[in-house]
Design a protein around this nucleic acid. Sequence first.
DNA 1: ACCTTTGTAGACTGATCAGTCAGTTTATAA
DNA 2: TTATAAACTGACTGATCAGTCTACAAAGGT
Lengths: 185, 185
Amino acid sequence: MDKQEEILKAALKLFVEFGFHGTPTSKIAKEAGVANGTLFHYYKTKNDLILALYTDIKTRLTEHIDSKASKNDSLKVAFKSLFINTLQWSQEYKQEFYFMQQFRVSPFILLIPHEDILRQAKAHLDIQAGIKNEILKPLPAEFLFSLINSHIYGIDQYLSSTNLSDSKQQKLIEDSFEILWDMIA
Amino acid sequence: MDKQEEILKAALKLFVEFGFHGTPTSKIAKEAGVANGTLFHYYKTKNDLILALYTDIKTRLTEHIDSKASKNDSLKVAFKSLFINTLQWSQEYKQEFYFMQQFRVSPFILLIPHEDILRQAKAHLDIQAGIKNEILKPLPAEFLFSLINSHIYGIDQYLSSTNLSDSKQQKLIEDSFEILWDMIA
DNA sequence: ACCTTTGTAGACTGATCAGTCAGTTTATAA
DNA sequence: TTATAAACTGACTGATCAGTCTACAAAGGT
């Protein structure tokens, strides 16, 4: 495997376990099986590495969601797809999802341009449309967005803290979506 | 003011801004206006300081909630009180609330005995009772608890990201509770 | 008055860290 | 072949860190 990928993989594992500053670059290099200097060959600073990891994970999540989405769906179906695929990804890539949460309450989040964060929420557009069409409740789009996001985190947390079979997990995710939909529609 | 309190206050401010490991004890001491050694007089290690800060904040939040709660309320009123008072506190003590979120996705959370974390959720008992009495939906108590918690975080995030007048904020919190109640009852 | 405990200070230390550097190996292409 | 660049190495460094130590001051008890 690519050494650059190994570095990201090792960084993810150690950051999740020991935190950003609690993980020395020397340990990352060792875990990745590369020399100290190699890490700095690919990432000028530790900061760069952290940001690159964030971008990498976010890109992968976005690609997963996009790959499963089909155009011309009704708003509800589109939302459901987004919801379910995000949660499935969160369970398949638990470390990655956990990292995102760590990152979001860390000082590093300030290094990401605010627009970039909102772009993740291209669902925003759909929310605006849904409100206009009276499919969604007449509440501020930002507010609905917060509700949706936190709902997803809540389900993820519950799934991660229990050990459900795949089928039960799947059912819970679907039921959770209906609960969410009742809440916002 | 007590130097010990000054140290906690300074630690909170700097941890929120720079993260746990991103904040040296020397800077905490300087911000608190005490000597380096004084900090270690009150807290044997930096770890102890972090844990003490967590305990302090959690105690203050719990006391706030308890002080506003009255016995013999119906389940809905009790829940509403918990919900509203938590959110009011989160807006009055933003740094403290943010710190709790940082702490919860940090490696330090592992140092808190699991039972201690659940005790925060003494609401659990009420949830169990509510399910039995068919006031709440027949779902796992842990699941409902996750939904309630994440809902609170979602509202907090929205409130923190906008600048509503006190009265509008108050109304939004109350409306949000009704949305939550419809979701779980 | 004397002693003990507690609080406070800040210079100091050994360890650790992010990042550098001088040089070696590997890959690519002329 | 040879030339050139890119990948890679690990010893090294200056800075910084958590925590220690010695000293002194204040408080309180007898």
